[in-house]
Simulated scan of single mutants.
Amino acid sequence: MRITQPLSYRLDLPQQYPNSDISAPLVLDSPHSGTAYPPDFAPAVDFGALRTAEDTWVDDLWGDAVDLGVPLIAAGFPRAYIDANRAPDEIDELLLDQPWPGPLNASSKVRLGKGLIWRMLDDGTPLYDRKLTVDEVRHRIDACWKPYHEALARVLDAAHARFGKVWHINCHSMPSVAGAYATDR
């Protein structure tokens, strides 16, 4: 059974869910498979360059797990728009046209320009030719990040309630040159 919310995520659940529940204490999520580029994105790079930030097809690679009773949630939005694997306070101040009104986490990913909202691609190419507004960032959090994490939490909680434990696999692919972009050695 597929559950879809615009911009946010696709949730694939076992056929009889919730009546028969899930068959194992396992939940899969693919936070970087999204390819639905929202019209408000307005990047300064071409579409081909944007696609290098995707983990395209990772959700398809794990898709058969649903037939075995394992839920899979996949982001609908691209990582270059907002990264579901970052905390909501990992906001890059260099990307904003005014100060962020809340706490900030200057993580190693933020310092690389790949915080919650990416400032640049892996090769250092800037994603924008402008600064983003606080409202734009809040919209991305509210429309994409929050619904994705709320759905993931519900499925994790359901698995935990049934089995008393749960394993969560965060599914990714890695480029053959990933070592060149490692944040810690």
Rank of each mutant, 00 (worst) to 15 (best):
M1G: 08
I3K: 14
R10T: 11
R10Q: 10
L11F: 09
D12R: 14
L13S: 04
N19A: 12
S23Q: 14
A24C: 03
V27D: 00
S30H: 05
S33V: 01
G34L: 04
Y37I: 15
P38M: 07
D40E: 15
F41T: 14
A42R: 15
V45M: 02
V45D: 01
A49R: 13
R51P: 14
T52A: 11
A53V: 02
E54W: 13
E54Q: 05
E54T: 14
T56E: 11
D60R: 11
D60P: 10
L61P: 04
D64A: 14
D67L: 09
G69K: 01
A74G: 04
G76W: 05
Y81P: 05
Y81E: 03
I82W: 00
D83V: 08
R86K: 13
P88K: 12
E93Y: 08
W100D: 00
W100T: 02
G102M: 02
A106E: 15
S108Y: 08
R111K: 09
L112V: 06
G115A: 06
L116I: 13
I117N: 00
I117F: 03
R119D: 10
M120D: 09
L121W: 09
L121E: 06
D122A: 06
D123I: 03
T125S: 10
D129H: 15
K131G: 11
T133D: 06
T133L: 03
V134R: 05
D135L: 10
E136G: 15
H139Q: 14
R140K: 11
W145P: 02
A151Q: 10
V155I: 12
A158Q: 08
A159Y: 04
A161F: 05
R162E: 06
G164K: 15
K165Y: 10
K165T: 15
V166N: 02
H168M: 07
M174I: 05
M174N: 03
A178V: 07
G179V: 07
A180W: 01
Y181N: 14
